[in-house]
């Protein structure tokens, strides 16, 4: 029988990651530093605020953004319930992580999406990578985060960003490519250069689509932040994780309900904001 040698795929990837860890330590250190600073600032701001104040502000913001009584009440009572379940610290920690991860994902995703729309080679490189990224199970992203950042919140942010960035890239690029050909021709016929065409025509028209991408990014970030509890993200996901390990069903469910509440609020608010932009 002929023996087919096993292809050392795993070893190769391991070697690659080791090499990256060795040679890009400066970058990972810088990333850690920035993320930790940002996260600490945001978290202490959120936790410094008395919960009732936070809840009122959140409800007011919801009303201002959606003008929907239902969603506003959901925010009000949902967050109150979370407070009542003594999950407040975990919730604000999760929210802070989602906010930071989303910001980073958008900061990376939108420009990459723009570049992909503008330059064919970028598009051709990015698209297959995104395809792979979006079929990979979320857990896999946790693994490389650890050698780079160790266990903890920065590793959680890293894997969350990687997991949440694809829709931001895809929908930004899509939004720009969707601009009608005649409008693009018109911008050119009236002497616009590539940059002017982007700023004055393509980005304004792509905004609703980009916003849809941002919505998806936020939702993905939330789901990943929960999973990232396994590598030390703490927060609501951490509560669930703890409950699983100790087989405390009640606590696990309570934390789960907390996650559902945060997810529903974010989803409803973002959808409303997105559709309002679209309707204009």
């Amino acid at each position: 029988m002929i023996e087919i040698p096993r292809i050392p795929l795993g070893q190769g990837i391991e070697a690659l990651i080791e090499w990256l860890v060795d040679h890009f330590a400066f970058a990972t250190k810088a990333f850690s530093k920035v993320m930790e600073t940002g996260l600490t600032a945001l978290q202490s701001a959120l936790q410094f605020m008395p919960p009732w104040l936070f809840i009122i502000i959140a409800a007011a913001l919801t009303w201002w953004l959606t003008r929907k009584r239902g969603v506003t009440l959901l925010t009000l009572f949902g967050l109150a319930l979370v407070w009542n379940m003594e999950l407040w610290a975990a919730t604000t920690s999760t929210i802070a992580l989602v906010i930071i991860s989303t910001l980073v994902a958008i900061l990376i995703g939108v420009p990459v999406g723009i570049l992909a729309a503008m330059y064919k080679p970028v598009d051709k490189t990015v698209t297959p990578i995104l395809d792979v990224m979006q079929t990979m199970p979320a857990f896999v992203y946790l693994i490389p985060a650890i050698p780079f950042f160790g266990l903890g919140k920065v590793a959680a942010i890293f894997s969350t960003v990687v997991f949440a960035v694809p829709p931001a890239i895809r929908l930004t690029s899509l939004g720009i490519k969707q601009v009608p050909r005649e409008l693009v021709e018109c911008a050119e016929a009236f002497g616009s250069n590539r940059w002017q065409r982007l700023i004055k025509l393509e980005l304004p028209l792509a905004t609703p689509t980009i916003m849809a991408g941002v919505n998806q990014t936020v939702m993905l970030a939330l789901s990943m932040v929960v999973i990232a509890a396994m590598i030390g993200a703490k927060g609501l996901g951490g509560e669930v994780w703890k409950a699983i390990q100790r087989l405390e069903m009640g606590n696990g469910f309570e934390a789960g309900i907390g996650i559902v509440i945060v997810a529903m609020i974010l989803d409803r608010v973002l959808q409303k904001v997105g559709s309002r932009k679209n309707g204009k």
Binding site: E182, C186, L201, L205
Partner: peptide
């Protein structure tokens, strides 16, 4: 242009 091509 035929279809006006106004920026909406």
């Amino acid at each position: 242009f035929q279809n006006f091509a106004l920026f909406p």
